[in-house]
Write a protein that binds this DNA or RNA. Sequence first.
DNA 1: GTCTATAAAATGATAGAC
DNA 2: GTCTATCATTTTATAGAC
Lengths: 214, 214
Amino acid sequence: MVAERIEGLRLPRTQRRQQILAAAAQAFAETGFHGTSLADVATRVGVSQPGLLHHYPNKQALILAVLEERDDEDSRYLDETFRDGDPTVVEWLMALCELNARRPELVRLYTVTAAESLDPAHPAHEFFQHRYQRIRRIMAERIAADQRKGRVDRALDPEHVATEVMAVMDGLQLQWLMRPPVDMCARFRAYLERWSAGGEDAAPAGGRRLSADA
Amino acid sequence: MVAERIEGLRLPRTQRRQQILAAAAQAFAETGFHGTSLADVATRVGVSQPGLLHHYPNKQALILAVLEERDDEDSRYLDETFRDGDPTVVEWLMALCELNARRPELVRLYTVTAAESLDPAHPAHEFFQHRYQRIRRIMAERIAADQRKGRVDRALDPEHVATEVMAVMDGLQLQWLMRPPVDMCARFRAYLERWSAGGEDAAPAGGRRLSADA
DNA sequence: GTCTATAAAATGATAGAC
DNA sequence: GTCTATCATTTTATAGAC
């Protein structure tokens, strides 16, 4: 039984746009940009297809809005979670992984559209090129900061480590989204503990210890 | 200047099918299953769209044929490369990475379609579910074999290591396919050397040493 | 083995009424 | 803000000639 569509129901602009972004995120996560039709998204929202295009002028604008909104939301959450602490990069990464583990649909959205966006003609091509550069830079800075605090082996190249960590996260996410799913957080924790074992000559300042369970 | 289409030119079945698989592999690598049209592939081959469908009855059969053929080809190559040696799992993995580094279009085909295939309705969904299970099993067996030979730390769980190694490869491939590309083989070698350092208490029997250059 | 012709459906987008 | 109507294209697939 599909939810009835209340035709012509007028909603405030912001609210409707939120609905649309949520529905579009689901659809793009399942079938990517090319595999998703505007009619598909419109149906999920309970609105006509031209009604959808009233809020986002075309398909490209829609997917970009989805990706950017989700990115902003995540940044805010992570900033907030560690507002007063001084987490090690390892703690920060595990928190990110555990956050992701609670949001498979979001992970899937980025896994699917990132691969699709390798095509230079893809509407999110530039978005993902910049996104990966940005995340790599942020991660390298955190690693370098931990090196200065003696928490990470100083012999390592921050940018190289950042590249590797991102690869592990992306790759584990893909296998986690498959059947049977791998235990993403357990594998990531094991990886991080092996990786950071060398440089742990100082206790985390304001953070908690990395625990083996959870 | 686009290559002229010689209309109606009759080619032997096998040869034409090879052409089609090659063109389809390119197209699917660039835009995935949903983003590729049969007309697109047909044009690349220099054949009409119904002419294409004469050789593969529908789009799903085409992409499955592409993926399976490429997998077979790779298996043959890897078996052949190490026919007489007894490579360590690390040597075997580096050879695989270096092979991939020479075939970006093939890597892209698998990166793009694997993510797309997370959708249970995708024509290659089952193919990739099985593929990942199979590769994980093969890799775990090689790791276990190396453990018995004292080449890899016996404390490690082969299946867990296999999962992690596959994640690193997949993740590095994605970043390698982006701009600017990361140095996939260098990052993979650094990862493997850190990973295998613990268990190297025996010299590889018939294999060569892992070198820092290449 | 390949083509032209064609069908039937889906898709992204616009015009204009309410 | 939402709809119906409509368009121009594209897309997968089939029929039948050569």
